[in-house]
Amino acid sequence: MNCLWCMEDRNNNLGWSDFFILNKQNGFCESCLSGLQQLSGKRCSLCSRMTEFEQCSDCEWWRNQFKSDPLEYNYSVFQYNSFIQEIIAKWKYRGDYVLGEVFRPYVYAAFIEKFTTQKKNLIAVPIPLSEERITERGFNQAEMLAGFLPIRQELLLQRVDGEKQSKKSRKDRITTKNPFSLEKMVKNPVLLVDDIYTTGTTLRHAARLLIESGCPEVYALTLIRG
């Protein structure tokens, strides 16, 4: 078994599972895993950012700006650091699909911890990519993440314009008009899934659209709190 990241041999203790499940490569070695920093300790109850306060300054700002926040809250798994940035770059932009597998147990555990018990009939809705991005990358990273969850996934949203978020400034992002359109109405609570929560604009655009068309509650699960 080789580490998906550094390609070094992961362990020399071959077991029966290795014999029966050939080519099952979905993990990092210990030392590569240690480069991932999970969010821990006190976090903002709304956006999952690590902070001493109940709510962080960003979320405060959001609340002052708009009277009602369409997003109940966001929950993220990892802290942003240069290592995860490298992984994301290779996974998403280079299109190394299988790298996403390393996040499966973490995303699953986060879901179990935060969403299973209280929410019934939750539907996972991945944040879509534009047609252009889809053909370029061959897959949508948010769909892959949503696929790790033990709930139904529906592709309810579609993207209208196609500009990359990461190429825009903070101000541009917050003031852009809603880039999504809704395929059909939902009466279930929705869990939006995406890879990175940076300013929260994308998720709130999607959430607003869902709420306006009658969705009772919208939550978000993201891999990284940027």
């Binding site: 080789n2 390609m7 080519n23 490569q25 299109g95 190394d96 699909y97 299988v98 889809i134 053909t135 061959g138 897959f139 949508n140």
Partner: peptide
């Protein structure tokens, strides 16, 4: 080397 091939559900 098979270790350097992986599968992708291709949207194309």
């Amino acid at each position: 080397d098979n270790r350097y091939f992986a599968e992708i559900p291709c949207k194309k």
